[in-house]
Design a protein around this nucleic acid. Structure first.
Length: 262
DNA sequence: ATGGTGGCTGTGCCA
């Protein structure tokens, strides 16, 4: 039995956020972190800074947009840098790895789902198409009955409890019915929304727009851990680290964090 | 908050 701590954070450029990220890692000492929107290719990724803190690093990079990474204090194997149900997509929105915990392991994925705004554009069609591919793959994964954590920026606000006020999202692709329906279907495959399972009242916002939104707590919960029951049974806490959203030059997202006794 | 911010890139696009 040991404590395993994992976080997921949309950093909105890993290079612009590097000082904040390094300080945060030193203080919090997570075993695994899933990053989204690293906004860089492999050649400019700050490997050394992260490796010097004791992390193994894998990533699927892209210039300017998107890009996802996984860092782990444990050995990483079985890496997939694309959704197997969507091999041809050239946007870097998915990376998966097996985290080797002595005699056991956890399959983790860092996902960055498309934002999809505005509705009734090809970007929204792309979002739905991507989410359907993700659903198809989640269905395959669900058959293995493993320890699985699918974490990241889903760009989906599941319910009205997950937003400060309804007006903020009424015409937004993050709250559009079709996208939310797919999110629900993934949960019906036996993936639990870990934050909402353990926190029934706390809104758990993970994103606040730049400007005055954080000051006024006009947030929305769009970053999620979807986890198999094997994980949720061992999970004792899921929380959002709001402090780091209040630093100078922050990301517009705060990390979602989870602690498991495994 | 269909941009008043912010990060890249390259003089606009994306969130």
């Amino acid at each position: 039995m040991k404590e395993f701590k994992i976080a997921s954070w949309n950093v909105n450029s890993i290079r612009a956020r590097l000082p904040i990220i390094l300080d945060w890692l030193k203080i919090n000492n997570f075993d695994v972190v899933l990053f989204q929107e690293i906004k860089t290719e492999e050649q400019n990724f700050p490997f050394q800074d992260l490796e010097s803190l004791g992390y193994n690093v894998v990533l699927s990079g892209q210039k300017s947009y998107n890009g996802v990474a996984i860092i782990s204090k444990y050995i990483i194997s079985d890496v997939k840098t694309k959704l197997p149900t969507r091999e041809k997509d050239d946007q870097a929105r998915y990376i998966e790895a097996w985290i080797n915990l002595d005699d056991r392991g956890i399959r983790v994925a860092s996902i960055y789902a498309p934002n999809g705004n505005p509705i009734e554009s090809e970007k929204y069609d792309y979002k739905l198409s991507w989410m359907k591919s993700f659903y198809d793959y989640a269905k395959l994964l669900s058959e293995y009955e493993e320890n699985i954590i699918l974490g990241g920026d889903y760009n989906i606000c599941p319910n009205l409890i997950d937003v400060a006020n309804e007006e903020m999202i009424s015409k937004d692709a993050i709250y559009n019915q079709e996208a939310r329906k797919i999110f629900k279907k993934i949960k019906n495959l036996n993936f639990f929304d870990a934050f909402r399972t353990l926190n029934t009242r706390d809104p758990g916002f993970t994103y606040w727009d730049y400007g005055s939104a954080f000051r006024n707590d006009l947030g929305v919960r769009i970053d999620h851990f979807l986890a198999t029951p094997q994980i949720v049974d061992k999970c004792n806490k899921v929380w959002v680290d709001k402090d780091v959203r209040n630093k100078p030059k922050p990301s517009d997202h705060a990390p979602i964090c989870m602690s498991i006794k495994i």
